[in-house]
Amino acid sequence: MNAIELKGLIKEYPGFRLGSLDLALPSGSIMGLVGENGAGKSTTIKLIMNAIKRDAGSVSVLGVDNQSRAFSGIKEDIGVVLDEAYYPEVLNSRDVGCVMAKTYRHWEPDTYENYLQRFGLPQDKAFRDYSRGMKMKLAIAVALSHQAKLLILDEATSGLDPMVRDEILDIFNEYTRQEDRSILLSSHIVSDLEKICDYIAFLHKGQLLLCEEKDRLLEEYALVRLSRERLADLPENSVVGVESDPYGVRALVRRDMVPHDLPLEHTNLEDIILFLAKGGTQE
């Protein structure tokens, strides 16, 4: 079963069109949703949660259409962390726990307490006095404390220092050890996604440029340094993106389409994303 399935999803605003998106997050896996600011990541997440109306297409979450009556119950099984933790500033973590206990049927106060301790979050300090890292940790503690089967995280690690990010990524990894648990994680920080994701979806200007298994992507693409003349000899469609410098060109190519004698360099997710976003030849 797919934890999330989008088919022909479209949302239009004046001056911006998202989609049509076709995407599936298999149950038990982690998908990274990457894209520049304004690419449509947050809009996609809002559409998945039915927080805004779609213009076309369908969205199924944990096997349920998100516009059906049953989806309200399914929301119990979804933990969401937005780019900021939007709790009233006068509440403290204990109050937030009480609100959530009255919100989620499967709320686990002990799990919540454990996360508060693990993250070093004080129980009596008002939310307004928290640092950004503490606020995000509180939101993550909430999302992990009601037996959610799906975590949806919108830029949950951005603005955090590398130590905290690493700690949180470990927790996400720990969370998906149970087979039926999945994560959709949107982020600018491609290195974070490379660390933990099984699948990568790349949104660019509202369009889904790719949605593939991370390992397959890294196997499929490679970097080459060559002269402009040699580049012109490469088969059509084998070159995904080109970057020029005074010494020649650097190109992202499809491994299986280029001659075997061409010296290929290993690439990483960040390069793939950048080359795909830039497309054609860059000076």
Binding site: K46, M49, A51, S72, G73, K75, E76, I78, V80, L82, E84, A85, Y86, Y87, P88, E89, T103, Y104, I152
Partner: peptide, 14 residues
Amino acid sequence: RAKWDELAAMMPYS
């Protein structure tokens, strides 16, 4: 002020 509505839309509230 807290932008609570954005969070509430993600929670099991109609």
